[in-house]
Design a binder for these strands. Structure first.
Lengths: 214, 214
DNA sequence: GTCTATAGACTGATAGAC
DNA sequence: GTCTATCAGTCTATAGAC
């Protein structure tokens, strides 16, 4: 029954709209995307969008929530786990994060941008879903700090900031890096793949006590 | 002649519009800001905006260019200087960058966002103004790499990425950090001030060869 | 469920008075 | 230079046919 043209498009209208909205919202942000554009991208009519989702804002919030959940799900499992070492958590976290980001390179910029325009909304969701301050990850960082195994660190939040910065920032500055380094999407993904190995090494070295006298 | 109400507002209409546009564009991005909103913020009429700047897009590009020039000016001087050491450049660069960013915390997110929607436009400007690859900074990084003084570094661009990430990312994730850490603008600025001292230390430690056998 | 047609509000820009 | 009033186009959302 499926024509060749529909081979890849065997989705309900609702799913097609969500896929189109996800793509466009993450690319351009809420205000830059018009409902007509989403409808066209989904290959359906404008009226159908409102039939399924009542309003543009409603559709947006749904997309945003699903997006954040996808990111939060894997991370939460890793950081709330008392059975793994700090080093193991960092390796798992950076590796997992980069894998998702390579597949969704526009999402970080999208989330950060929404965070700027509607801070309460987004930070609430992240705070609930991740709950970093009550995680085993944070506990272990504090323990290591007390033991003196992590130097040059005034507050555990700095550890967290630097981890996120080194992991996420290359993706939000992707257009610049691709231009300056004169590389394409594939080469960029490869470069990020290479960072997977390096991130735990760098993060450990940043706070490593000097070992001159050993 | 100036009334009390105008005490702080002794600016030409043109300057008031530019100030309002800068504030709103950096806060919300091009599409989210309406011309009527800029006019209201500037305390002038909508028609006057078009009288001075012909169009919204024109006004935007002007603001963007001035913004980028402000950032690029100081940086260019630092990285194109064969008389200073690599360490001195890093200290000057991070310190100078953070000072500007504390005063303009919304600008990085604004620039990154525009970079996403109009990559060619922004990356061209940055590439021209900064020209990182032909800088003395890059030459010195490559020299140090060849001498084996920088380990764990596959390509000099990674050095550059990590430098930018650790410097800029806290500002683009500012709303999240303020929420999670439960801090206000002043405390955030103080936290960034504290990072000024740490950034050169961290960046040096990341690539420092082990010194066990000394 | 899916479409066409259109209502109703908003947007960027301009004409023209002062 | 600065304003009021308004045009022409676009936007989201809905009414109503099938």
């Amino acid at each position: 029954m499926n024509s060749k043209a529909e081979l890849e498009k065997d989705l309900t209208a609702e799913a097609k709209i969500k896929a189109a909205a996800l793509k466009l919202f993450t690319q351009k942000g809420f205000d830059a995307v018009k409902t007509r554009e989403i409808a066209a991208e989904a290959g359906i009519n404008l009226a159908l969008l409102n039939y399924y989702f009542r309003s543009k804002e409603n559709l947006f919030e749904l997309i945003m929530l699903e997006n954040m959940s996808m990111f939060a799900a894997g991370i939460s499992v890793i950081i709330h786990n008392s059975a793994t070492t700090l080093d193991a958590k960092i390796s798992a976290l950076t590796s997992h994060y980069i894998d998702i980001l390579i597949k969704n390179p526009n999402v970080p910029q999208f989330v950060l941008n929404e965070m700027q325009s509607h801070p309460e909304k987004i930070t609430d969701i992240i705070g609930q879903k991740i709950n970093i301050f009550q995680s085993d990850l944070m506990k272990q960082v504090q323990q290591e700090m007390q033991k003196g195994h992590l130097v040059n660190l005034s507050h555990p939040i700095q550890y967290f900031v630097n981890l996120l910065a080194l992991t996420i920032f290359p993706f939000v500055s992707r257009p610049l890096l691709m231009k300056l380094g004169d590389i394409n999407d594939e080469a960029f993904a490869q470069m990020m793949e290479g960072r997977k190995k390096m991130l735990p090494v760098w993060l450990k070295a940043m706070y490593a006590p000097k070992t001159k006298n050993e």
